[in-house]
Design a protein around this nucleic acid. Structure first.
Length: 988
RNA sequence: GCCGAAGUGGCGGAAUUGGCAGACGCGCGGGAUUCAAAAUCCCGUCCUGGCAACAGGGUGUGGGUUCGAUUCCCACCUUCGGCACCA
């Protein structure tokens, strides 16, 4: 999910150079007196790998300790791009690595895995450009990335590594798709249930089918449908096989439908709403996107809109992200209201409004251009204009629609409707500012109190009637806030909220409308016309086109090898999509039979079906799944990645994911990643997880209990006079501070500097391998954490790294002489040093707990600066190295091994985290500022005990020589004493 | 337009519940070491005035609450992020 667009390049040679260094060094401490980070870092990375230092014991296994509390820490799934990582990418990984090393030392059973989200368009495009199969390039990229992560010193459990492109992984992605296909959302229990249950209920006639194919309870039918048309619901037994199939398909959580989709001809594929920018272009590649109706796989995420919104209340996520999800789901409460047509007895127009209290102000109506009633109600004299308008609207691209947001357009149909509250005759218009996909595709327009209606009414000279009196003295025209009702008959004087309630009741009593909840969220478009994705476990009957899911026993459906991976792209937006899998002609054609459960089992050549079963010919589904599919559930596969019977064993899943209490969300204990996945990945994942939860496959209602958004690492970018970006390696800074100038080294040209996201496009990427090679991995880790708070975006500055490099060199030199001897003393620490030790343990412990790495490092620097003695007491030295070890693990391991000497047994990661005593964290004497009227006038030094006593503080402060001098001639009105902090004397 | 986050020295940032603003690091100035330089070490470094002690000002701007405000409240400005005809 890390976007490869922003990945920077570095010389490929260096990778190889480092790779062989990696295995060259002996494990035993070399005894050298220099901080030889290249040697130490390679040595310890090799040690961790060979000894599986960070392997996580599995519940039920002999080495598993049930007494330890569990902690599941997850990094967002990276996409292994061809150009590798830049220093911005590992920010979150370093943070979680430090956190998990720390929590492991504190006695937690920590799970911290890593893997690769390796399907998707970039791999496919790369493969197309370089003429090699996507699998080959993907595997090479994964190998590169794995090496890079190891060189960053990451303590992952490498035995749990996964890639979405492995058959052993994507068979379970396909399995989850089958769960979706074979389930429906049962409103009676507000959860997904197997489709077999729906069939059973229909057979038992607890449910019947109404006129539009929806199932309704058999009892109370007609009452459920308030508008009271008794269209003759049907029993299951009365339906034809074809009708039954249609009914089931209308309820499956995965279904094929002809819908207006985002078709991107340049990419040769359709895109989800979430993948289209608000300029109407593709999120990837910035190509134009067109609306067109296509038959595509959809996932019924809208059934979960309510729960996805509601359960945000139980997760520990940043409020900003929760808000973005709430906005995307877009829940609104309002009412549906029926307007009768003035000249047509049969039809009514149903509208959705969130402001039923403004019904008396409705002066016209608007239908979306795609609304089915448009053709029917339009009068002859207006027909020509309406048809033209509808045709133009239909052919507009997303780009055109958004480009014209300023100016309202529309045409009058010639028809009129009757406002149900006051029987006014109001005109019906068609306009593209009303969308078919939201609400009912029709609105009542209240120009006085809706901005869009107001603009439209002004342009077309439609009447504007005030029905809300603003609370303040604002102008009522275009006032959209709450207020008091006017011009609303018997409802005059009611406040907005109360009016809404009253009018909704009134509408329901008179069978004119009902209270309704609406969502902006649409169903998820789930198919892509690409090669490099998971094939659907779906076949189509070669003759009838009937759709069948494959039987679970047919999984995995392996992606076939083909010669030409290119999507069949076209400049022509009307060209039909042609998925590359169509080229695998042999793979596409299969034979099989339908089982009792309705799934299809395939027959290999020579195989025969069971007796009496008809053999049928099928075509395989040619679409593949979007990249989000694999990343929707990867956190579950880490739990038990080698399991061949299930995506994860039940008891293993329960151990890591189950909530400890009923009201908790359970799931991953800490999920760290960028905010760019606020809607897409995090919403899709939650949806899949809830389906699996409903079906009893997982034990937590939410996948990610706690989410933390890291900030971006920004970097300066330089542009020449034409605005072209200049590679940062070709830039020189001249002068200081405000007089600084930036010039191009190659030709001396003056450049302008700006701050942006690090990446290829701004030519400002810095490769971690370069930094590791020059300064060391530990220095890179410490620097990235020291730059500022994890959640903040901050600019990279290669110049500043020397500070942290100096710090680590100083650490080394404080404990090791130039001859390699240890500067450790077995004598106990003195009072001051003892207190410093406890104080630092406390600061680092609390800071790491809250992911405040920058201040934890500052505390360590301060402690080191205070250790300026010839020989450091052993207890102090050992504690310091333990505190440093999660942050700079290689250096700490090396020091630890040397400090332990012959007694050394294992990695410092196996040690426990040092404790502190609260009493030892306070200095023996405290300096207290004494203020007069809020200004510091003197300082007094008090023993800790005295500084905790308000009376004594006041006494000493008032007796202070400087204070008495300042107070002469003034009266003391009040003395404020804050124990151990300060004294403020109010005098005048 | 709507929603959200953030504005602190030359720079990155610190100040956990309202209690010494600027911890820590970079950079810069001075000194030591060196034939010299790099590296290293020591001292200084918010601004203004003063040789100094010290005085005054200071956390985007303007107001407010408080003995006391970077922190809380109101209004505004700027930057970044999200959404954008969702009735």
């Amino acid at each position: 999910m890390i976007c490869p667009r922003n990945a920077g390049g570095w010389p490929a040679l260096r990778l190889n150079q480092l790779s062989y260094q990696f295995t060259e060094y002996p494990l035993m401490s070399s005894g050298t007196g220099n901080y030889d980070f290249l040697t130490f870092e390679a040595k310890w990375q090799k040690y961790w790998l060979e000894h599986k230092t960070f392997r996580t014991p599995q519940p039920g296994k002999p080495d598993f300790d049930a007494a330890k509390p569990k902690l599941y820490v997850l990094d967002m799934f990276p996409y292994p791009s061809g150009v590798g990582l830049h220093v911005g990418h590992p920010l979150g990984y370093i943070a979680t690595d430090i956190y998990t090393r720390y929590m492991r030392m504190r006695g937690f059973n920590v799970l911290h895995p890593m893997g690769y989200d390796a399907f998707g368009l970039p791999a496919e495009q790369y493969a197309v450009e370089h003429g090699v199969p996507p699998r080959e390039t993907t595997e090479k990229n994964i190998a590169n990335m794995r090496d890079q992560l190891r060189r960053l010193g990451m303590g992952y459990d490498w035995d749990r590594e996964i890639a979405t492109t492995e058959v052993s992984y994507y068979r379970w992605t396909q399995w989850i798709f089958l769960q979706l296909y074979n389930s429906w959302y049962d409103p009676a229990v507000d959860a997904a249930r197997p489709i077999a249950e729906l069939i059973h209920k229909l057979e038992q006639e607890h449910l019947v089918v109404n006129f539009d194919g929806r199932v309704v309870p058999a009892q109370g039918q007609g009452l459920q449908e308030w508008y009271g048309l008794p269209p003759g619901t049907q029993r299951w037994a009365e339906l034809s096989p074809e009708q039954r199939r249609t009914v089931l398909d209308q309820h499956r959580l995965a279904y094929l439908d002809e819908v207006p989709v985002n078709w991107c001809p340049a990419l040769g594929t359709v895109l989800a709403n979430e993948e289209v920018t608000n300029e109407g272009r593709s999120d990837r590649g910035n190509h134009p996107v067109y609306r067109r109706p296509l038959r595509q796989w959809m996932l019924r995420i809208t059934k979960y809109a309510d729960r996805l919104e509601r359960d945000l209340g139980r997760v520990n996520w940043p409020e900003a992200i929760k808000l973005m999800q709430r906005n995307w789901i877009g829940r609104s409460e309002g009412a549906e209201v029926d307007f009768a047509l003035a000249d047509d007895e049969e039809e009514t127009i149903r509208v959705y409004t969130t402001r039923p209290d403004t019904l008396f102000g409705a002066t016209y109506m608007v239908l979306a251009p795609e609304h089915p009633l448009v053709a029917k109600i339009t009068t002859e004299e207006n027909r020509r204009a309406v048809e033209d308008y509808v045709a133009v609207a239909r052919n507009k691209t997303e780009l055109d629609r958004t480009a014209e947001t300023k100016e309202k357009t529309g045409v009058f149909t010639g028809a009129h409707a009757i406002n149900p509250v006051n029987s006014e005759r109001i005109p019906i218009w068609v306009a593209d500012y009303v969308l078919m996909g939201y609400g009912t595709g029709a609105i009542m327009a209240v120009p006085a109190h809706d901005t869009r209606d107001f603009e439209f009414a002004q342009k077309f000279n439609l009447p504007i009637i005030q029905v809300v009196k603003p609370l303040g003295d604002e102008d009522w025209q275009g006032y959209v806030g709450e207020g008091t009702a006017v011009n609303s008959g018997a409802f005059d004087g009611l406040p907005t909220a109360e009016f809404k309630k009253k009018i909704t009741e009134w509408l329901e009593e008179n069978e004119l409308g009902k209270g309704t909840v609406n969502y902006k969220l649409r169903d998820w478009l789930f198919s892509r016309q690409r090669y490099w994705g998971e094939p659907f476990p779906i076949v189509h009957d070669a003759e009838t086109d009937e759709i069948f899911a494959l039987d679970e026993s047919e999984l995995p459906v392996e992606l076939p090898a083909i010669d030409d991976y290119r999507p069949q792209a076209s400049e022509d937006p009307n060209a039909p999509p042609a998925p590359p899998l169509g080229r695998a002609t042999e793979w596409v054609k299969v034979r099989g039979y339908v089982t009792d459960t309705g799934s299809v089992k395939l027959l290999r050549s020579g195989q025969s079906p069971p007796d009496g079963v008809q053999v049928r010919a099928f075509r395989r589904e040619l679409n593949t799944m979007p990249q989000w599919a694999g990343s929707c559930w990867y956190y579950l596969r880490y739990l038990d990645n080698r399991n061949e019977q299930r995506f994860a064993a039940r008891e293993v899943e329960r151990y890591w994911m189950a909530p400890k209490q009923d009201n908790e969300s359970g799931g991953v204990d800490l999920y760290v990643g960028g905010a760019e996945h606020a809607v897409l990945h995090l919403l899709y994942s939650r949806f899949w997880h809830k389906v699996l939860y409903d079906l009893g496959h997982v034990s937590s209602p939410e996948p990610f209990g706690r989410l933390f958004n890291q900030g971006y690492i920004q970097a300066y970018a330089y542009q020449d006079a034409r605005g072209m970006y200049v590679d940062i390696r070709d830039v020189e800074e001249q002068g200081e501070g405000k007089n600084a100038r930036y010039v191009r080294k190659s030709n001396g040209e003056a450049l302008t500097r700006s701050l942006g996201k690090m990446g290829k496009s701004l030519k400002n990427a810095v490769a971690p391998d370069d930094i590791c090679h020059e300064f060391g991995t530990d220095t890179l880790r410490v620097y990235e954490m020291y730059m500022g708070p994890l959640e903040a975006s901050k600019p990279w500055s290669t110049r500043d790294i020397v500070g942290m490099s100096r710090f680590l060199h100083n650490v080394w030199r404080r404990f090791v002489t130039e001859d390699g001897a240890l500067r450790i003393d077995d004598a106990p620490a003195d009072e001051a040093m003892h207190r410093l030790q406890h104080k630092t343990v406390k600061r680092v412990t609390l800071d790491l707990k809250d992911l405040r790495f920058n201040t934890a490092i500052a505390a360590l620097i301060e402690m080191l600066n205070a250790l300026k003695v010839e020989r450091v007491p052993r207890a102090v030295a050992e504690t310091f190295v333990q505190l440093l070890s999660p942050i700079a693990p290689h250096l700490s391991e090396e020091l630890w091994q040397r400090m332990c000497g012959p007694k050394w047994k294992d990695s410092i990661a196996a040690e426990s985290w040092p404790d502190y005593e609260e009493a030892m964290c306070i200095d023996a004497e405290i300096e207290i500022p004494v203020q007069i009227n809020g200004k510091v006038r003197s300082r007094i030094t008090l023993p800790a005990a005295v500084a905790g006593d308000v009376k004594q503080m006041e006494q000493v402060a008032l007796a202070d020589e400087r204070i008495t001098r300042e107070l002469s001639g003034k009266t003391v009105r009040k003395v404020v004493c804050i124990p151990q902090r300060m004294v403020n004397i109010v005098a005048g």
